[in-house]
Simulated assay, not measured.
Amino acid sequence: MSIKWRAKRNAQGQIIPSCWETDGGYTVVENRTPEVCYSITRPGEKAPSFYTPDRQQVSALIDADERALA
């Protein structure tokens, strides 16, 4: 399954740096603490559900979660 991405925007319509939203409503944030780590938040949730240091795993985790919740 191919995931479509767009920059996430705040309430004023401004792009939030290092933050994206999928067409399915997942939010992905690139954190630097000090290494890069991606946090993935499910649609409608406030706290991240998954973390990964591997950018390539972000799509795989979202795809697996969508299939598990279907």
Rank of each mutant, 00 (worst) to 15 (best):
A68Y: 04
D65A: 07
Q12V: 04
D54H: 14
E45Q: 10
S59C: 09
Y38I: 05
E21P: 02
V58F: 04
E21M: 12
C19R: 10
T41D: 05
S18L: 15
R42A: 14
V29N: 09
K46D: 12
P34G: 02
Y26L: 03
R42T: 04
N31L: 13
E45Y: 06
I3R: 00
R9E: 12
A68F: 06
T33E: 09
P48Q: 06
A47H: 12
Q56C: 07
S59K: 14
A60R: 11
G24Q: 07
L69W: 04
S49D: 13
C19D: 02
I62W: 00
R55Q: 14
E21F: 05
A47E: 15
C19N: 08
E66L: 13
E45P: 00
K46Q: 14
K46I: 09
P17S: 06
G13C: 09
I16R: 05
T33G: 07
S2F: 06
A11D: 08
N10P: 04
I40F: 02
R55D: 08
F50Q: 02
R32Q: 13
V36S: 08
C37A: 15
N10F: 04
G24D: 10
Y26N: 00
P34Y: 01
V36G: 03
Q14R: 14
A64M: 05
G25N: 03
Q14H: 13
R9Y: 03
P17C: 07
A7R: 15
E66V: 08
M1I: 10
T27K: 04
T33P: 04
L61F: 06
N10E: 04
A11E: 13
I3A: 00
S18G: 00
I15E: 15
K8P: 02
T33M: 05
R67P: 00
V29Y: 05
Y38P: 08
C37S: 15
R55N: 11
A60M: 05
S59M: 12
Q56G: 11
Q12I: 01
N31I: 05
D23Q: 05
M1T: 10
G44M: 11
D63F: 06
C37G: 07
L61M: 14
T22P: 04
A11V: 10
T41Q: 07
E21N: 06
Q12D: 11
Y38K: 04
T41N: 06
K46A: 14
D54L: 15
